[in-house]
């Protein structure tokens, strides 16, 4: 296979994997949010419905992060070190936000 052809095949696989991660994340978070919201309206907050809502939000926020992680794995598998490095930087920026969130949380 030519370098261009290999890159094309790698790009197509990356799109498929990223698409699958996004679909799974949207489906899981939407399900948790729908059930959690209806349950909260019916029975009030607290207990399982509140946990479901929290899980739904965390999965929603985690979905873009998860697709960054699988992208890193794909670029490493393709030995595309330039894009692997760039994607690792994006992940580090997301981790920096999480650290900032903890700092603000402690101040409350």
């Amino acid at each position: 296979m030519t370098p261009n052809g290999r890159r094309q095949a790698g790009a197509e696989r990356l799109e498929r994997v990223v698409g699958a991660v996004l679909r799974a994340g949207v489906a899981a978070s939407s399900l948790c949010l729908i059930v959690g919201l209806l349950w909260t309206i019916a029975a009030g907050s607290g207990g399982i419905p509140s946990s479901l809502l929290q899980i739904g939000i965390v999965v929603l926020l985690g979905t873009p992060a998860a697709r960054v992680v699988v992208s890193i794995a794909e670029y490493v598998a393709e030995r595309d070190w330039r894009f692997a490095t760039l994607t690792v930087i994006v992940l580090l920026e997301l981790l920096a936000s999480a650290v900032a969130a903890l700092v603000f949380n402690r101040r409350l």
Binding site: G36, S97, F104
Partner: peptide
Amino acid sequence: GVTATAGAIIYYGHGQLEPTLAAAAVL
């Protein structure tokens, strides 16, 4: 998605993200 996540995590940590209202808005 990645852009908004980097911001939303900070609001979440600061206790400004109310899950019930966020769920209603998202749906």
